[in-house]
């Protein structure tokens, strides 16, 4: 475990907790894309299939349970909670899941490290995670208003993957056998998708004005 990975995991943990706390305290999910949250629940489910078969460390297992629990709770809140669901903007959050799920599945079947169920599922989760933020970014551009908690949430999500890239670079140089190009590519694509959001986030932060994404 190196500092980049720990910082990445903490940033990721913080992002889902910020979101869960926001929804739980103000009982609103305005500006949040349910599609993205459902895709993340799918990412964690297909990524952590080995949670009960391969024990890596207590930290690893606890974090997996937290990510699974928080992502499913967020989906539950937006779908089922009698107050929160009223603030869900379903006419704006229209991104089709299968536009992302199908291509990632097909890609994972053809491009993977090993053609086994677990490995294909794991690769699928990597590809899906790279694009899962798209419905959220589309929703932000449509609704144009970004409350700062949502902005912080997306920012932290992007930052976590950028820290993971530093972790992969660090491990590449310190652990010679550790090179997984699929992980690299998916991680870089994911971070690039956030790049334009980062640009506008920093612009608004620097000019101390409300975050506006171009239409």
């Amino acid at each position: 475990m190196n500092i980049f990975r720990l910082a990445g995991d903490m940033t990721h943990l913080f992002s889902v907790l910020v979101l869960l706390l926001k929804i739980h305290t103000i009982k609103s999910c305005a500006g949040i894309s349910l599609k993205t949250q459902e895709l993340y629940a799918l990412v964690f489910t297909t990524r952590y299939l080995d949670i009960f078969t391969d024990f890596i460390s207590l930290y690893n297992t606890v974090m997996k349970l937290i990510f699974l629990g928080s992502s499913f709770s967020i989906v539950w809140y937006i779908r089922r909670h009698k107050i929160v669901r009223r603030s869900y903007d379903k006419d704006q959050d229209t991104f089709r899941h299968y536009f992302l799920v199908i291509p990632c599945l097909v890609l994972a079947v053809f491009i993977n490290h090993k053609f086994t169920f677990k490995e294909v599922m794991w690769t699928f989760s990597l590809y899906l995670e790279a694009v899962a933020i798209l419905p959220q970014l589309v929703l932000l551009q449509r609704t144009r208003n970004i409350d700062n908690l949502t902005g912080q949430y997306v920012f932290l999500l992007g930052a976590y993957r950028a820290l993971y890239i530093l972790n992969w670079i660090y491990r590449h140089f310190t652990e010679p056998h550790y090179v997984h190009w699929i992980t690299w590519i998916a991680g870089v694509v994911q971070t690039l998708l956030y790049a334009d959001f980062f640009y506008y986030y920093f612009q608004s932060w620097k000019n101390n004005e409300k975050l506006q994404l171009p239409a």
Binding site: R5, D9, H12, R47, D50, D54, I56, S57, N60, M63, K64, F67, H113, K114, W122, Y164, N167, E175, H177, Y178, H180, T183
Partner: peptide, 10 residues
Amino acid sequence: EEDLETKDEL
């Protein structure tokens, strides 16, 4: 061993 290596990350 290689497999475990990949999977030690979240």
